[in-house]
Simulated scan of single mutants.
Amino acid sequence: MILRSPVTGSHHSTLTNRLTKPCYRCLHARTTTSPPIPQPTPFVPDPSTFLTLIGRDLSQHSAKITTWKSLFSLTSQQLCDLGIEPARTRRYLLWWRDRFRKGLFGVGGDLKNVKDGAAELRVVEVAVPNAAIPNELSTSTGTGLMKVKKMIVNEPAEAVEKGVELANLKPVEGMKIVGARTIVGPFVKHVKGTRGSVATIKVQAGMWEVRQGIKVDGGERRKVQVRRAKLLAERKTTRK
Rank of each mutant, 00 (worst) to 15 (best):
G174N: 10
G179Y: 02
V188F: 03
V172A: 10
P171L: 12
G213Q: 04
L121P: 07
A127L: 06
G117S: 09
V107D: 02
R122D: 09
E209P: 05
G213E: 04
I201F: 12
P129T: 00
S138A: 15
E220C: 04
G108L: 07
G117A: 11
E155L: 15
L166E: 15
D110A: 13
V184P: 00
E155D: 04
L166I: 13
V123A: 09
V107W: 07
G117Q: 14
V224H: 09
R181F: 10
T141S: 08
T194M: 01
K112R: 10
E125P: 03
E161D: 07
D116G: 10
I214E: 13
V164M: 10
A131S: 15
M151I: 13
G106W: 03
V184D: 06
A167N: 02
R122Q: 15
E161S: 06
L137N: 05
S197D: 09
G185P: 03
T200Y: 14
P171I: 06
K162W: 01
P186D: 02
V126A: 00
I152Q: 10
A157Y: 11
K202H: 13
A118E: 15
A205Y: 04
G117I: 02
G218M: 12
N154E: 01
N154W: 11
A118T: 15
A132V: 06
V226E: 08
E158S: 09
Q225D: 14
V191D: 00
N130R: 15
A131F: 12
G117L: 09
V123M: 08
D110M: 08
V107S: 10
F187Y: 15
V114I: 04
F187M: 05
A132G: 02
D217W: 08
M146K: 11
R211L: 12
K162D: 06
F105V: 14
S138M: 03
T141Y: 00
N135V: 13
L145V: 01
A132H: 10
G144R: 01
A159T: 01
M146N: 07
E173M: 08
I201S: 10
A132W: 14
K162T: 03
G193V: 04
Q204G: 08
G185A: 05
I177Y: 05
V224C: 07
K192Y: 09
